[in-house]
């Protein structure tokens, strides 16, 4: 896990890239003036907001992150069709349940990303991260954490946990190298 960026003037490269793209999208043009303004904003805003933000792990493997993003997008579409069928089907047959998934990730940022993908993908909504203390300082020993999720139609608990760990958590561990 790496917390510091390479250059001091570019504290979070992906935020800068995102700001650059969003500015061009908002103006809907790629004229020279807008590109210059976008570059200025993409450098100044992360520098100005640096003191307010806690240090987050950087994405170390961008290629893998992009592939994981495509996989998640594909899963969102298939899972939505499944959920739509479940919703329109008979309600009496559904057996909802709460499942506790043990987490290997330790830092708050990868856990947030994992919880968001779990919420968006197969009939599950992430509910809670146990134990409660939210912020980990760097010298603190990382403790084991659990993610509580609510499942719309629970069939096989162990299979669901394995799917989440293999399909969504393992790539995240590799992307952030933690």
């Amino acid at each position: 896990m790496r917390l510091e960026a390479k250059y001091n003037w570019l504290p979070s490269p992906f935020l800068s890239l995102l700001l650059f793209i969003v500015w061009l999208f908002l103006n809907n043009s790629v004229s020279n003036g807008h590109i210059v303004l976008a570059i200025i904003l993409a450098i100044i805003i992360p520098l100005a907001t640096k003191p307010f933000r806690t240090k987050q792990p950087l994405i170390i493997k961008p290629g893998l992150a992009f592939r994981h993003l495509l996989l998640v997008l594909y899963d969102i579409i298939t899972a939505n069709v499944q959920v739509a069928i479940l919703i329109l089907g008979p309600t009496k047959k559904l057996t909802p349940g709460f499942v506790k998934v043990p987490l290997d990730l330790t830092h708050s940022m990868p856990i947030t990303i994992l919880a968001s993908t779990v919420s968006l993908t197969p009939g599950t909504v992430s509910a809670e991260v146990y134990p409660w203390n939210e912020s980990l300082t760097e010298d603190e020993e990382p403790q084991e954490r659990f993610l509580l999720i609510h499942v719309l139609n629970l069939e096989d608990e162990q299979a669901l946990i394995n799917t989440i760990k293999e399909r969504y958590e393992a790539p995240l561990k590799e992307i952030f190298q933690c």
């Binding site: 959920v83 919703i87 329109l88 968006l120 009939g123």
Partner: peptide, 25 residues
Amino acid sequence: VGSIGLVKMPDFYMRLHGPTKATTL
């Protein structure tokens, strides 16, 4: 479908599934 799920499901935790997924897509 998302709004039907919001009305049809019996408890809050199941209602949450419709709007967070179907409506977003």
